[in-house]
């Protein structure tokens, strides 16, 4: 190739840069600012904001896997709630015999019990996810209507199985001693468990960002979410990747189920399906397939729910839907849409 031609193909323009889209990041700040003005009392506002952050992190942990599952294979999984419920029940089963550790007046013993329960719930839900993908999802790849029907059916069967195994009554999930109550600073009270939930949510978010941006698997997932066919044409088996992501997403839902059950302190087998409405709103707001968007969407939905519950309890139930409608009118593909083929 001649130098002349090389120069021509080189297009000596300025190096193109990705447009940093910071506007969505300003939304939670603006929402918090508006709530501050409406609430008026700084301590109440701060308590509500922290509660919102904790709730948002828990929803993010639950929703992050679902958004990747949809992004990678266009699979709409209404059965995701089953993994949340299984996580909660597994944690309850583990924490039962560990009551002395849960009730001990020692942070380390409490953490050990909680970590073991979370580990069992995470891996248990992940294993269930593998089976669910094989039995329920695989026969209906590419068939959205059948996916909706069969995954909803899977959720109903899972819930009924949990009722049959554990009984249909409401279950209690006591917080470990060290995470009961609040840390009081002046007029402010920070609930300890909410601080823990925020910490776990941040760790999950950072781990996902590192995996997606710094590893080859992450590169494949990001490419697959955008164009799975081209990833296959490059020689990678997207189905295997999808199975891995599905299991990881189910495992995270299991972990989220533990946190959500501890947050509410009581639950039934419907714990998953109850939270799924919020989860779907979050992944739609964030942009299907976008982990960053899912994180932001979870925080926004939780803020809206907490602030409106205080300011206007009558519209609290509809607030998330109103938020979704407003965001989709502004950005129909969500806050951070993933470029699809």
């Amino acid at each position: 190739m001649t130098d002349q031609a090389a120069t021509r193909t080189g297009a000596a323009d300025a190096i193109p840069q990705a447009r940093l889209d910071l506007i969505p990041l300003a939304l939670p700040v603006a929402l918090a600012g508006l709530a501050f003005l409406l609430i008026g009392t700084p301590t109440t506002w701060l308590t509500l904001t922290l509660a919102a952050l904790a709730m948002g992190m828990m929803i993010f942990v639950i929703a992050s896997g679902l958004t990747l599952v949809f992004g990678l294979m266009d699979v709409i999984n209404f059965g995701h709630g089953a993994f949340i419920a299984v996580g909660a029940y597994l944690a309850m089963t583990v924490l039962g015999p560990l009551a002395p550790l849960v009730q001990a007046d020692s942070l380390m013993l409490n953490l050990a019990a909680l970590a073991l329960a979370a580990l069992v719930a995470t891996f248990g839900a992940g294993a269930l996810g593998l089976a669910f993908e094989r039995v329920v999802i695989r026969p209906v790849y590419g068939q959205h209507l059948k996916q909706i029907l069969i995954t909803m059916g899977g959720l109903i069967i899972a819930e009924q199985l949990l009722h049959a195994i554990f009984g249909g009554d409401q279950k209690a999930m006591a917080l470990p001693t060290a995470f009961r109550g609040a840390i009081v600073v002046g007029d402010l009270a920070f609930e300890k468990f909410r601080l823990l939930a925020v910490a776990i949510g941040l760790v999950v978010f950072l781990a996902m960002q590192l995996t997606l941006n710094r590893t080859r698997i992450g590169l494949l997932i990001r490419a697959g979410v955008e164009n799975s066919e081209m990833v296959e044409a490059l020689g990678y088996r997207i189905r295997r990747l999808f199975v891995g992501v599905f299991a990881a997403g189910s495992a995270l839902a299991g972990l989220g189920g533990v946190l959500w059950a501890l947050y509410r302190e009581t639950f039934t087998a419907a714990i998953g399906s109850e939270v799924m409405v919020l989860v779907f709103i979050v992944i739609i707001i964030g942009g299907l397939g976008s982990v960053g968007g899912c994180f932001l969407g979870a925080i926004l939905v939780a803020m809206m729910a907490n602030y409106t519950a205080f300011l206007a309890p009558k519209v609290a139930l509809a607030s998330s839907i109103l938020l979704m409608v407003a965001i989709l009118m502004w950005r129909p593909q969500g806050l951070y849409p993933v470029a699809k083929r």
Binding site: L219, R222, E226, E229, M230, A233, L234
Partner: peptide, 30 residues
């Protein structure tokens, strides 16, 4: 398709199908 690619065939589709969210380096590395 992945097995055909691994047999030694590369494909440049009409749509180019570059991964827009990935950098040039990431596209080529992949």
């Amino acid at each position: 398709t992945p097995e055909i690619a691994r047999a030694g065939i590369a494909y440049v589709p009409e749509s180019m199908a570059v991964f827009s969210d990935l950098t040039v380096a990431e596209n080529i590395t992949l």
